[in-house]
Amino acid sequence: MLLSTLNLNHFLLLSLWLLLCGFLCIFRKRNAIGMLIGVELILNAANLNLIACSYFIPSFRLEGQIFTLLVIVLAAGEAATALAIILAFYQSHGTVDVDQGTELKG
């Protein structure tokens, strides 16, 4: 499919919107899993950015897709580790509220 009327700006703006929503999501949630959802949104914004660039910038065609694949795989790893940490935190504290994790405060 050849995009005729769309250009990079559309996708970059959508990606920017997703990035800002992700940041806001991290700031506004005290639930650790909610913060993880924000991280996923940010990674998604980055992926969309990369794919849009891979389509509209010819010399970036392969790299964009490969970087996105790497990001997706790393995101899977990140989610698994983060959820394992959250579960361990829940086992020891009985909550997922990140404000309760203050033992290491200096």
Binding site: L48, I51, A52, Y55
Partner: peptide
């Protein structure tokens, strides 16, 4: 991504 021709991703 499908719209942007990146079906595998």
């Amino acid at each position: 991504y499908f719209l942007l021709d990146a079906a595998f991703v």
